[in-house]
Write a protein that binds this DNA or RNA. Structure first.
Lengths: 162, 162
DNA sequence: GTCAAAATTTACCCTAGGGTAAGAAGTCAG
DNA sequence: CTGACTTCTTACCCTAGGGTAAATTTTGAC
């Protein structure tokens, strides 16, 4: 059980944990040189979240993972997880499918970012995560979609009019 | 052996092939509703390329894979590859590492797109792929970095001045 | 080489979205 | 309910980068 605002991974630290979300919502984000936050990922029920760049490459975290609403998560140690594969080889295909799905999701996101306008990205976000929207602040959604909260607010105002 | 301009995967078709590059260069891209191309991925020596969205999800290709310069690639059938895991379980961790690296690369790309300017993205691209640049047209690089070729040209002109 | 076709650069103006800041609306502790 | 704090909206102007198009350079076939 973690509470809103709790930081599970802090930028700069070594990462050997990954979290599986049972309930609630979290996000991973970085802070750029001007102090602006950029959300890489949201995680809700049944999603994994961590700083995968840091974990897979064994480098200090460039991301932070923060709790957006009170959540229940399972914490896994990366090393322990790595050792699961030897005694339980049936876990391999499971994890492989997971990674494949992750790659697909990321490819889609990159393509969307390349070809859609701010407005289209927001509409797609609403369609994909119809329920996530209530629990997540405007500001966080904007930083995930690659726009300012002011732009998102403008887009929302336009959509209401239509 | 495939020649410059050859299309290995065509948007719309069913995808059950993935390619491993021995030499040369290829790219995967989509065409948006206005007819603009967006490059999702380049592949050079030792990289894999396909339409992973289509292959993993068993849906028609939204991407095309095209040969940028004369190349030598190995073609793998997705089903065959899937069946390799049973007799050769040692292939699993290998593929898992591959996917993990892929996820890391995609995370980095998304973060770069969120926080860097056009100029910074181009400079980073040059640093990451110092040799790729000669063999790939300006137009393709621009469509990968999420800007027009005119913008890229402007950025390059500025960089020469400095 | 010569010519055509393609790629790149440059120049012009234009627009989507950013920056700053002020106001409005929720949210919540007491 | 009240005041403090946070989030969201609106309004203003501004800028990075897009669109169009023409000029230039590069490439490649013959």
């Amino acid at each position: 059980m973690v509470s809103k605002g709790d930081v599970l991974i802090q930028e700069g630290q070594t990462v050997n944990k990954t979290f599986f979300v049972l309930s609630g919502s979290l996000r991973s984000f970085c802070i750029d040189k001007e102090g602006k936050e950029h959300t890489l990922q949201f995680a809700i029920k049944d999603w994994w979240i961590s700083d995968f760049i840091a974990m897979y490459n064994q480098v200090p975290a460039s991301l932070s993972v923060e709790c957006i609403s009170d959540s229940v998560v399972l914490e896994f140690d990366a090393q322990t997880l790595d050792q699961i594969y030897a005694p339980f080889p049936e876990f391999e295909p499971f994890q492989r499918k997971n990674l494949e799905r992750h790659v697909v999701a990321l490819h889609k996101r990159i393509l969307n970012q390349l070809q859609l306008t701010a407005r289209e990205r927001y509409q797609l976000f609403l369609a994909q995560y119809p329920d996530i929207e209530q629990s997540i602040s405007n500001y966080h959604i904007a930083s995930y979609l690659g726009m300012t909260q002011q732009s998102l607010s403008r887009v929302r105002a336009e959509l209401v009019k239509t």
